[in-house]
């Protein structure tokens, strides 16, 4: 990886963040809402409202507001949430790990289940297993997340009662075992503290939302893997390796599979944005204290600084994930030089 490449990617990252900031800032300011009413507390007087407008700089022209906002933003001051009255950056740092944990779990399921399913379908091309995988992957990729989340919650939590249907963890378990947050990632923290009770409870809470969220990337992965695998097996190199005497299973599971992994990971990187949107929905249904829930509450209360912060963080995470994806791709394919 060249220095020029890293510099280019960082510059691109900066441009993305700046662009997202400006666009969301302008959008939030042109919406006809009166956030100063929220800031001024209940039953405010005219005077209090006027003071609130000043404090929030709502009396200034929009470009002046933008200037101050950008200046503060890049010095680490993302403003104070009008709803929680905490620094936005702090709010986000508290809720982001929950979302990432959910999304990573969903992607792990997508990769660990989707790739084998896709390979199975390709190897059994045109047969029953192929048909089942294809139907399943189309359903998975096209089912509305919100609806699936509600159904899953209803069936597994309310009716069957086998899995918890809300929150990340049972508070009583946390208190009883003296669990502390370190990174904010529940699974990681409980492993670091060798806290089996919390780990088990957190996993139990994670299963349902993660499964629901994984359906889209899982379907996508299975379909992509299947198509790419069929293509790779029809390539001349798969044929010549077998003609030279290599066993078919080696050609499929070692050689052709490697041709599949890199583009599948690339497509997963691109689907990351869509999955984050899915995560917002899942968080709402499962009361998952992540950034999606935070953003939804912020939107409903016209909490502009929080909204902008959430949008920027999502853009940032998306860009970083795709940077990692490009690096992984390059490490798998010797023809790609970064």
């Amino acid at each position: 990886m060249s220095k020029a490449y890293v510099a280019k990617r960082l510059a691109m990252l900066f441009m993305v963040v700046l662009g997202v900031l400006v666009i969301t800032f302008v959008i939030t300011r042109v919406i006809p809402a009166r956030p100063e009413l929220l800031w001024a507390g209940s039953h405010p007087t005219e005077e209090q409202i006027e003071r609130a407008r000043k404090e929030l700089r709502l009396d200034e022209p929009i470009y002046v507001q933008l200037y101050y906002y950008l200046k503060d933003f890049f010095t680490g001051d993302w403003g104070v949430s009008w709803r929680t009255r905490q620094p936005v950056l702090q709010d986000i740092m508290e809720s982001l790990p929950a979302t990432l944990e959910l999304v990573f779990a969903a992607f792990a399921i997508a990769v660990m289940v989707g790739i084998p399913l896709g390979v199975l379908a390709a190897v059994r091309y045109g047969r029953l297993a192929d048909g089942v995988v294809r139907v399943f992957s189309v359903l998975g990729a096209s089912a509305p997340v919100f609806w699936i989340a509600l159904i899953a919650q209803l069936v597994f939590s309310s009716w069957l009662g086998v899995l918890p249907g809300a929150k990340r963890v049972d508070e009583s378990v946390v208190i009883e075992t003296g669990f502390r947050e370190i990174t904010g990632f529940m699974i990681l923290d409980s492993i670091l503290q060798l806290n089996a009770a919390v780990l088990l409870d957190a996993l139990k809470h994670l299963v349902l939302p993660a499964l629901v969220l994984s359906l889209y990337p899982l379907g996508l992965t299975a379909r992509m893997t299947r198509a790419l695998m069929i293509e790779a097996l029809n390539e001349y190199h798969s044929i010549s390796l077998q003609v030279w005497g290599l066993p078919r299973r080696l050609v499929v599971y070692k050689y052709a599979l490697k041709n599949v992994i890199a583009p599948v990971i690339a497509s997963l990187g691109l689907s990351f944005g869509y999955t984050i949107i899915g995560a917002f929905m899942v968080e709402l249904v499962f009361v998952w204290p992540g950034i999606g829930l935070y953003a939804a509450l912020a939107l409903l209360s016209f909490d502009y600084p929080a909204v902008i912060g959430c949008v920027v963080v999502v853009a940032l995470v998306y860009s970083l994930v795709n940077m990692v994806v490009d690096i992984v791709h390059a490490s798998l394919d010797p023809r790609v030089k970064l």
Binding site: S238, V243, L246
Partner: peptide, 18 residues
């Protein structure tokens, strides 16, 4: 491979690029 083998027209396509 052991008893009979074959080479093809397009050598560049005959090898897995990875």
């Amino acid at each position: 491979g052991s008893l009979v083998s074959m080479v093809f027209q397009d050598p560049a396509a005959s090898f897995n690029p990875l």
